[in-house]
Amino acid sequence: MFFGLIANPFKLKKQGVMGMNRRNVKFISRVNSRRNFPLVDDKLKTKLIAQKADIAVPVLLDTIRYQAELRDLHGRLEKHAKFVIKPAQGSGGRGILVIVNRDGDHFIKPNGDYLELDDIHRHISNILSGLYSLGGKYDVAMVEELVEFDPVFDRYSYEGVPDVRVVMYKGFPAMAMLRCSTKESDGKANLHQGAVGVGIDIATGKALNAVQHDSPVARHPDTKFGFSELQVPHWDKILPLAASCFEITDLGYLGVDIVLDKNRGPLILELNARPGLAIQIANAEGSLPRFDLIDKQEAGLSVEKRVAFSIKNFARLEIKKEPPLDSVSESPE
């Protein structure tokens, strides 16, 4: 419509594409209780409840709560060669500092830049004074073990942190995408900063479609590898891991970010109570029909049943061949 410049809203609606207003009014405010937000807005709390429920997360090395603790920063960081510093209440990937190695007194960033201890000192001080937190609240800096990324994604990621985003609705995995960092996104996996989003088939973990800046792309802009061959490993573990986050947060509309560690397999990186809309573009499919189908299911199913339901009903290849099955009772266990 209009020379391909803008979408036809009626077609979007027919496809069940969810807009920002619908997400806020009909989903976040309805199935996400306010009092559960701190569990996911504070990454430290998320990590603690996840650890308690035996959900795999990157190891927490240290937490810094007060400016005074920074005096001994040198001593505190001495035993760690590679680590990530992040604000517990940061959002949108803001304030995350990744250190991949040390060279004497210098710390090396993924892009090869050298940092002084003072730079890290200032960064943590900014975190504590609330520079990266919503509303400028005082914050806590977390020092996490650096995830040893599974080299399987090396071809699809530039300098950074590829992660799998699974959008959960009422505990059912509804849609998934792989977020690949690019040169433009400065190694970050945020789509609005220029990372590539690759839609992933819920049933198989295979790539469906890729977008950068909301427009389809066939190859990674920096590595030039095509996405069509991409297959997310450990897919059978990723979905149950994501689904189990519903039990610990009780948030009906939840984004689960998962990274693949070379040694430990899939780890929950963080949770998001307001996952964005780009996953639909990456999947080239609206999410509302899937949410509607999930709404028809009974509540209180086990993680395994929910994952099985999603695999059966949201399998992309099968959807194209035959009409979707509309009840979980018909699905085999």
Binding site: L12, V17, N21, V25, V211, D214
Partner: peptide
């Protein structure tokens, strides 16, 4: 209002 924003029509242009 739970309909689309005008900016989303640009954003979702690859979908419809």
């Amino acid at each position: 209002y739970s309909g689309y924003r005008l900016s989303e029509l640009f954003r979702f242009k690859s979908m419809a």
